[in-house]
Design a protein around this nucleic acid. Structure first.
Lengths: 213, 213
DNA sequence: AGTAAAATTGACCTGTTGGTAAATATTACA
DNA sequence: TGTAATATTTACCAACAGGTCAATTTTACT
């Protein structure tokens, strides 16, 4: 015990807490932009307003920082799916799920990009988390399957439906540059968000066919 | 002219052509997985079965390789959108667009990931290409808008519709690890693809509402 | 076969990167 | 106020990265 690392001790100091938060905040910026290998500790330390050795006093390795980010990310990220209520109205439930995912993409784009980066690289650091994810998705897919069997919504493949919801919503975080480049620049983020929400609702509920109502 | 670099000379040798192809092939692997900053020349050279200096004999810098990949990528990538025919049947045109994009995701996942990596990092190296992209998208969005005005398809925001098509199809390339982890492992790529195609058609055309036909 | 151009390599250089060691400064708390 | 634990910094290291150079081998062509 010659070197009682801050992160290891039981009680966390005020300074410790503050600095760890600053580091994680900065690391989220850098990792989400450059990916794990593309990010450097120097960059993160700099963004956190801190010297590199000082940063390494709080997190022993680059991996350690990344791990914490990924872990906390996944928790929040899956909350909307967890809340899908089997007893609610199917279309309303799905619409609210879509909306909540879209809000996450709007409010936490860096988290989305961090996750996307990890996926692009083949998810080398989150194999076990993917297993938990599968369990949750399978569970909710069963819920959707039941809805379909009960004749409450159109037949479709529940897993792929979930993929489509993920894809369309996260797109606004992950491909934000592209979205902004293509939409007129004067479009505010609020406008983009509400247009996206309206379009997704239209698509997922009614599709593109002329409705005969 | 003391050093007539291979890539600069008019006539391309057999060896030159072969090696450039091998390098680009290897670079696509590495860049698409690790992103620009995460990829190293050593990795690429190694994957191409070639020494680093030899690789640098064909491409002067890491950027040069990346640039070629991005340029050729964008061309092929946008072909399906270019072919959207204003005089065709709207829903059939869009369905065939979706299918072609899905085929691209299946057959050229690395290209998709390369592009995704660039987007995640804020598209630092493809600003001007994004402008061309905007022009094309605006043009096709106008086509869709006309279809809507003609009462041939349901009202929606054409730009966001295109985003949704991109998102859902590319998802199968970019998030392949996740998709595979969540679907049962025994599912073949053909099965995944056909399930995805069917689901997307259902979604984009009919939506999830119970159809009354 | 001879030769000039093209291709390849090993050795090297410079800057960067993840991480360490030891010394110093600061804080919390009795 | 003293002091032990905590926090921070300076100086450093070894490995790696992008890229160059000069020398050597291979190829294409007469």
């Amino acid at each position: 015990m010659t070197k009682p690392r801050a992160a290891e001790t039981r009680k966390r100091t005020r300074i410790q807490k503050e600095n760890e938060d600053r580091i994680l905040e900065a690391a989220l910026d850098i990792f989400s932009t450059f990916g794990f290998r593309g990010a450097t500790i120097d960059q993160i330390a700099n963004a956190a307003g801190m010297s590199k050795p000082n940063l390494l006093y709080y997190f022993r390795t680059k991996e350690a920082i990344h791990q914490v980010l990924i872990d906390t990310l996944l928790d929040n990220w899956l909350d909307p799916l967890r809340e899908l209520n089997p007893d609610g109205d199917p279309l309303a439930e799905l619409q609210s799920y879509i909306r909540r995912k879209l809000e996450l993409a709007r409010d936490y784009p860096r988290e989305s990009r961090l996750f996307a980066n990890e996926m692009l690289q083949g998810a080398p650091r989150i194999q076990e988390e993917l297993r938990d994810l599968k369990a949750l998705v399978d569970e909710k897919a069963a819920v959707i399957e039941q809805w379909i069997k009960d004749g409450k919504m159109a037949r479709c493949n529940p897993h792929h439906l979930i993929f489509s919801i993920w894809a369309t919503t996260q797109h606004y975080a992950d491909f934000d540059v592209q979205v902004c480049a293509i939409l007129a620049e004067e479009e505010s983020i609020e406008r983009r968000f509400s247009d996206a929400a309206k379009t997704l609702e239209q698509l997922f509920v009614h599709g593109l066919k002329i409705s005969t109502k």
